[in-house]
């Protein structure tokens, strides 16, 4: 009787789970298999597959001789490093400023500061073309107004600073999101603990460093993990501003893959690049999950 009920439950379980599982597998996991299969061919995206040859590992071998590939993945890495260096700190400090600032209208601040995070990246990136424009752009005009003419730059056109300029857009749009995560974390930190630290003579920054931060350590981990993965997923931002230029100075995996696939019609090669990109993201996520788990056990 008992096992009969269990059996029925199991059947129902699968009835509930199966539709989602099928849709997700067919349209989000199967693509990875297709991608891998095509990466062993020289398909150009147009010819029927019957006219396409299997080329074995040639696409992968070519990749390791391709300078632009190295450049692109290095730019992703640079993006990641910049993300890790600036975004957690910026969003944490802002969260502290909002939370502990004796300001009554915290709700207003949170709401306003969060606005960039809700805008489509497309809109943000077009908007920043005006911010960075050499022809009366916002930033250059402000620099002129405060007599810092020597700081004026072609922010997106100068290959030395273009990638950093793009990163600043990323920072502008994304730090409010992480700030909100920190804010929700700060609410769980007990004020008693902080008060007693102050009574023991700890200064403002000491309290933050030795009491507040350790309390929200798991959240710091989450934020760092997310911005690392984000560095390898950047696409819209670059695609809508510099398209990887000038002279590949901002080319990232996403834009490289798009260009190889749709401008150069080398789908085979593009899928090989794509496989590598997917693997990088998965490996980083996996390490991050492992690390996150083990640090949770520690604390």
């Amino acid at each position: 009787m008992k096992s009969g009920r269990r059996k029925k439950q199991l059947r129902n379980f699968w009835l509930f789970v199966l539709p989602a599982l099928v849709l997700y597998t067919a349209l989000w996991m199967l693509p990875l298999v297709f991608n891998l299969v095509i990466s062993f061919t020289n398909w150009n995206g147009i010819n029927p597959l019957s006219m396409t040859k299997i080329v074995g590992l040639r696409n992968y071998i070519n990749m390791f001789r391709d300078n632009i590939f190295y450049k692109s993945i290095f730019h992703n890495l640079e993006f990641t490093v910049l993300n890790v260096a600036f975004i957690p700190a910026a969003s944490f400090l802002t969260a502290i400023a909002v939370e502990k600032s004796f300001i009554r209208k915290k709700g207003f601040l949170r709401t306003t500061l969060f606005i960039p995070a809700i805008l489509p990246m497309l809109l943000v990136s077009i908007l920043f073309r005006w911010v960075y424009s050499v022809d009366g752009g916002m930033l250059n005009s402000i620099l002129e107004a405060v007599h810092l003419d020597s700081w004026q730059r072609n922010f997106l056109g100068d290959y030395r600073i273009a990638l950093f300029s793009l990163f600043v857009i990323n920072l502008w749009k994304n730090y409010p999101f992480y700030m909100t995560i920190f804010l929700s974390g700060l609410q769980s930190v007990s004020t008693d603990l902080e008060e007693s630290a102050k009574i023991d003579g700890a200064g403002y920054w000491q309290t933050i460093w030795y009491v507040t931060l350790p309390c929200i350590k798991p959240i710091v981990g989450v934020v760092v993990g997310l911005v690392i993965i984000d560095g390898f997923r950047v696409f819209d931002l670059v695609f809508n501003t510099t398209k990887g230029g000038p002279a590949y100075a901002t080319e990232v995996m996403g834009t490289l893959i798009y260009r190889i696939a749709f401008s150069d019609s080398r789908l085979g090669y593009a899928t090989a690049l794509s496989t590598v990109n997917v693997l990088v993201v998965l490996v980083i996520s996996f390490i991050y999950f492992k690390w996150n788990r083990s640090s949770e056990v520690d604390s």
Binding site: P31, F34, N35, F235, L267, T271, S274
Partner: peptide, 11 residues
Amino acid sequence: AQVMLIAVYLV
């Protein structure tokens, strides 16, 4: 989606 572009296109 940014990482899945080509893969999704194939499917």
